[in-house]
């Protein structure tokens, strides 16, 4: 697929748009349909398209595997910490009102932070799962090549 000119050109146009649309439904989720889950999936789909066209090695250079591991946990941690911040400031768990003075601003800030946590987790989980499956395949090919080299 890497040598196909049409795919490369179209992907070059489309991938930034997909990533931008992912960010849009992430941060515009309170005004229009969307939210962290969908945004994370769309963002991950953009990255996976990049991997399909340019190969896994280049894709892992853009977002290294180690970063994905950290991000999966960070998203969930961000969510939980926002919840705990509500407790620390004198409310219930995941109570957003104590976060800021203005109740509406507090709710919006809480929702945005929490959705961002979900988005980060979902995006990195999807990319991680895809990476693991894709690498499994190349491992099998390597193992096959070794077995053939031994002269079966």
């Amino acid at each position: 697929m890497r040598e196909n000119g049409i795919l490369r050109v179209i992907a070059r146009f489309v991938i930034p748009l997909i990533l931008l649309f992912g960010l849009y439904i992430q941060f515009h989720g309170e005004y229009s349909p969307g939210g962290g889950f969908q945004a994370g999936v769309v963002f991950a789909a953009g990255w996976i398209l990049f991997v399909l066209i340019y190969g896994l090695d280049l894709g892992l250079k853009v977002i290294p595997e180690r970063v994905m591991y950290v991000l999966t946990a960070l998203g969930v941690l961000l969510y939980s910490l926002v919840g705990l911040a509500g407790v620390a400031l004198g409310g219930h768990f995941l109570d957003f009102y104590p976060l800021l003075e203005d109740p509406h601003a507090a709710q919006q800030a809480g929702i945005i932070l929490v959705e961002f946590g979900v988005g980060v987790t979902v995006a990195s989980v999807m990319m991680l799962v895809f990476t693991l499956f894709a690498r499994r395949r190349s491992w099998w090919d390597e193992v096959d090549a070794e077995a053939d080299g031994e002269g079966r």
Binding site: E30, Y31, P33, V76, G83, P103, Q107, Q108
Partner: peptide, 22 residues
């Protein structure tokens, strides 16, 4: 003050459910 009701219910009223989902 959030116009999209679905987002408000998911992230604010039903926050713990969404945490579980994450």
């Amino acid at each position: 003050g959030v116009p999209n009701m679905v987002a408000a219910v998911l992230a604010s009223y039903r926050s713990i459910d969404t945490l579980g989902e994450a």
